[in-house]
Amino acid sequence: MNAIAIGALSTTLGPHAPTRAAGRRMTSCAGSTGPDGATFSGCIVRIAERGDRDAFACLFNHFAPRVKSYLIRLGAVPEAAEELAQETLLTVWRRAAAFDPARAAASTWIFTIARNLRIDLARRDGRVPTSDDSELSEAPARPDDALSALENYTRIGIAVASLPREQAQVISLAFFADKAHSEIAGELGLPLGTVKSRLRLAMARLRGALAEIAP
């Protein structure tokens, strides 16, 4: 079996050759008023093909503030969140050739990079992140705040807003509070099975909204 090291910051889903869809090239990726997946994918492809700095700027302007927002919700102080957002987008630049627009949306890929960087930083040198850790703030965002932070004109924002409250709550704890199933169950005083089924139901209801976001 052929084994190749996968880049540190990749989604570690295995080595894959970049496949670039011809004709997907966008003349512009302006229009950052909404998450236009195809357009942002095109930006990453342009970075891979010709180191396109305008495409990078476009991605940066849209995603860096949102990655920062994501990290703040997970408890990072703003300075650390900004640094990690920078690092996330620089990783997008460096690893653009590993992005496969046929496999994932730009937002999905950037999410996995930010997620992995955060995990690796938090655990570097075996340090246990605590509330007095300089990289983490003392007051992590409350889960309900996180969901209300979704922009309500986005399809996913609308879909999440229409979830029953208990389903929205587990989605929020899972994605924006760094909680495993077992921790969510403990926090809400629910059996593990209930947490699992709420997450599953929420995923099923959000699937329709996700399908509308082209890769």
Partner: peptide, 23 residues
């Protein structure tokens, strides 16, 4: 599927302002 949802949630988050010279 989970990562796709994560990406969609990320893309829909209200942005946190960056330092003026961030880009």
């Amino acid at each position: 599927e989970i990562e796709e949802l994560g990406g969609a949630l990320l893309a829909a988050l209200a942005p946190a302002p960056l330092q003026p010279d961030a880009l």
